[in-house]
Design a protein around this nucleic acid. Structure first.
Lengths: 335, 335
DNA sequence: TATTTTTGTTTAAACGATTAAGCGAAATGC
DNA sequence: GCATTTCGCTTAATCGTTTAAACAAAAATA
């Protein structure tokens, strides 16, 4: 490896101290440095192709200009889009993002957070996982700047930016009712994560408001890492009861894709026989003959706000900011 | 911020030198340290919740255990999957991945590479962009370890792992011919990127081998950042010529999704009237009534090999490894 | 002219780790 | 019993920056 050029090398070549070189290249002490020296130093730096060693700088300044982003899985389109926007947003402020996938496993989550902290990230943006409360509390205790996105815990007093999931599910369910569905079911995750329980609550509340009884039996839960067959079973069950469902709300786009794949094989027409709505946009459902009506999460907005809150928190502010964003029901052919 | 615990703090508390603390916590000088001291140091470290400052360590050891991954766009499923596998692979070896999206812009690409180098990454995994040859050559000149994935330049002598695009396109086209297509077209990117030109060449070669003339006019190119209308126009043109196409090969999954959305609105049946094949798997096409036949790129394999080659290169090896991976034609309903 | 101020620069101490070299004391060899 | 080896630990330099403080020389002021 061609040895890297350091401040010292420039200093030696020009015949000045490293301090002066540092001042010049960082534009400090403006006006107190002779044109002559400044010129010579800049010239040498360019010629020698000097690049500052951020590691050394970070050690001294205690600032890495790096943000850690912890999500469930970067290969999930929801998170990869979020990541992309955060990346762009951070770049505007000269920050780099390091990303880690927790796979919804609390141990992996904590390990990632630790790794990121060891690397001295300036702050964290976190899509939490069930069972990570203690880890988050530790962050708070150690006064480490972070913002939760998408998922948060009501018991943890921290910055967050998340969808108003209750309202979104409520609205979606009401829409199904309004278009004439009489037996509405929901397939969602079996998880105590607050954003997911809120979706269930919103669904049930909308049904209740419309005098619907016997709600529980129409709410089917699948595991967080549900594969195709588990979702199929859930849908099949809802369709084969005494009063088969004529409307379905899916708790995530992943579930929706799996469910629609299955429904597509059945002698059912959407939305005539079965109306469908899901959470999150995803163009994988655009090619279905009845593109799905969905609840759009304003990702740009969420990512932008999360980044802004984090940067704000990092450089001074100690107040907690909690943002609930409204989803938007995008009505298409399926409901 | 609760002040962080350093080696010095532990040393002071236990009453030994920082050197000894370092040796103990890193398990160096095994057997040459008294059980007594070791125990006390480890205990103190645990109690004080010590975490090593990787920045400081990196400065001294000249190793960051960080890999820079430069791709076109993390929100593109192809890359996010690749990223995920690389992340997992790297983690096994205790490396962290920092990711940047170049948006196919050479300036952004170079800026990312520079940022990563300033952060002293140990190596780079790169999906290159047209116009970045000089940047790559600089890396070579400076002897910086890197591996190209997916895209590479035949003129640049560097490690790479990529699909054999010629062969893949050739096979796909032959398949279209074998199922009876007589007028085969291709919609792909207008880009001099080697992997993309290879796809065109493979397509044309297969046609030629089967005595097909007038090939060029059936090859439509769209810009790298083509939006819906551009793809629609290309498809429309191919369908409206004197001899309309009855078979289509798409140069990427993105193009395929856009094209199929359009084709879905036409009074055409796939594959009866028009057979379709695309590059890259993508479950967004699973819900189309005729799930697309596609060329599967073995992402796991590619990511794994790229990571392995990079790590190997990083810790000693100077030989160049170039891997051409064979795609697999996954035949489904569309062709 | 003597004193103060300004200017341009250097000195040197950090940041938090790693690690070669050194150094007494205890153990061993002959 | 003296020389040597081993043991357990410390000293101190170093990585490449930043930055407060010091300091000559020049300029301004009195």
């Amino acid at each position: 490896m061609k040895k890297k050029v350091s401040l010292k090398d420039i200093a030696n070549r020009v015949g000045v101290s490293t301090a002066l070189v540092s001042y010049v290249l960082n534009n400090k002490k403006e006006g107190r440095i002779s044109e002559e020296s400044a010129r010579k130093i800049r010239e040498a730096a360019r010629e020698m192709n000097y690049r500052t060693n951020q590691i050394a700088r970070s050690l001294k300044t205690n600032k890495t200009f790096t943000i850690g982003l912890v999500i469930a899985d970067i290969s999930n389109p929801f998170f990869s889009r979020l990541a992309r926007i955060i990346e762009d947003e951070a770049e505007l402020k000269n920050y780099t993002v390091i990303i880690g996938s927790s796979d919804e496993k609390p141990e992996k989550f904590c390990k990632l957070v630790d790794t990121f902290l060891d690397k001295q990230v300036d702050g964290l943006i976190i899509a939490a996982t069930d069972g990570t409360e203690s880890c988050l509390n530790e962050l708070i205790e150690n006064n480490i700047p972070f913002v939760l996105v998408d998922r948060y815990f009501p018991a943890i007093h921290a910055n967050y930016v998340a969808l108003d999931n209750f309202k979104a599910a409520f609205t979606a369910t009401q829409h199904l009712i309004s278009i004439g569905c009489n037996n509405i079911g929901m397939v969602t995750y079996d998880s105590p994560l607050f954003n997911l329980t809120e979706r269930k609550k919103g669904f049930l509340a909308a049904l209740k408001e419309n005098g619907n009884r016997n709600n529980r039996s129409r709410l089917k839960e699948v595991s967080l890492k549900a594969r195709q067959d588990e979702v199929e079973k859930a849908v099949a069950h809802l369709l084969s009861s005494a009063q088969p469902v004529d409307g379905l709300l899916f708790g995530s786009n992943t579930i929706a894709v799996q469910a629609v794949k299955y429904i597509n094989t059945l002698p059912l027409r959407v939305p005539k026989d079965l109306a469908l709505i899901c959470f999150d946009e995803t163009d994988s459902l655009d090619l279905f003959y009845a593109p799905l009506t969905y609840i759009r999460q304003p990702l740009e907005d969420m990512a932008r706000q999360a980044t802004a809150i984090l940067l704000d928190r990092m450089d001074k502010n100690n107040k907690i900011t909690q943002v609930n964003i409204e989803g938007e029901l995008i009505i298409r052919k399926s409901a």
